[in-house]
Design a protein around this nucleic acid. Sequence first.
DNA 1: AGGCGAGGGTTTGTTTTTCCAACCCACAGG
DNA 2: CCTGTGGGTTGGAAAAACAAACCCTCGCCT
Lengths: 156, 156
Amino acid sequence: MAATKDPRPCSIADALAVVGEKYSLLVLREVCLGNGRFDQLVRNIGAPRDVLAARLRRLVDAGLLTKRAYQERPQRFEYRATRAGLDLEPVLMSLMAWGDRHVRGGDDRPMVIEHSCGSELLPVVTCAACGGEVHHEDLTAHPQVPGWTVKGPTAA
Amino acid sequence: MAATKDPRPCSIADALAVVGEKYSLLVLREVCLGNGRFDQLVRNIGAPRDVLAARLRRLVDAGLLTKRAYQERPQRFEYRATRAGLDLEPVLMSLMAWGDRHVRGGDDRPMVIEHSCGSELLPVVTCAACGGEVHHEDLTAHPQVPGWTVKGPTAA
DNA sequence: AGGCGAGGGTTTGTTTTTCCAACCCACAGG
DNA sequence: CCTGTGGGTTGGAAAAACAAACCCTCGCCT
């Protein structure tokens, strides 16, 4: 099962193997917002309960969420984001900004985020080295794995 | 079909409705890398051909890709990213960085990106207003739609 | 003591998707 | 004529998603 397939090795694919299934990123969104209870997740996301249960198991196994009892008797649980999960929030913010711009029209955003600096968050992806914004035009890819160049598989 | 469900209105969900299906973001990755031909996509992504064809149709319809002939006789096509598609690349870069860190161990990255400033790209999401990095701790959400607070649906 | 409701799921049966392999078409080269 | 490449489509089996119902524990009300 590892010889007949052979996609490009890539951390985007690896990331999506963890959070790429339907609803997973919405679970992260809700948990980051503070809505970590099962029925809140069901209502706010609109996912079937069984699918949601499967996603939660997966995200806990992958170390993005933890499940903790917020009370005993009757036992009730809550999901919380780990550091790995919280670190996805900036990615979600840029995805949200993209959705605001290119899926909705840029108008009537359903959610506005406030940054601790006091202003409304407009997330931009920048280069840590120079501080400049990151655009497609400024990027050059360097695959590190032999056989995987940037213009298709080397041979064949 | 709009009364019995009622998930939180959100641009993350809207964005995922466009690029959230399996393989869609990998298609974007390959096209941004310059691999826009059908069989390159099949090989580099590892997706079934029929699923890939469906994703390409969807992404073209959604305005993220265009399909253009790069030669007549025999007619051969190539997919290219529109501005909307290219604008997703920074998001992919932050997702890749997250995958590097939290899925792989931070070592042996399969792909390194060079920024036009000359150094290796380490993407960070920043606030356009203050320039500071965006972390979960610095964010406060303000839903704009009545009935959708940040702590679960208002009532019930 | 009986009934109701919340919270957090699991079970069951049906509908969609995914997956895989095979096939098709146009043309180019030998 | 036969083979190979590019870009798909088709058909049937396997896997997911979906919806509704069900289960269990407990707290509260009467």
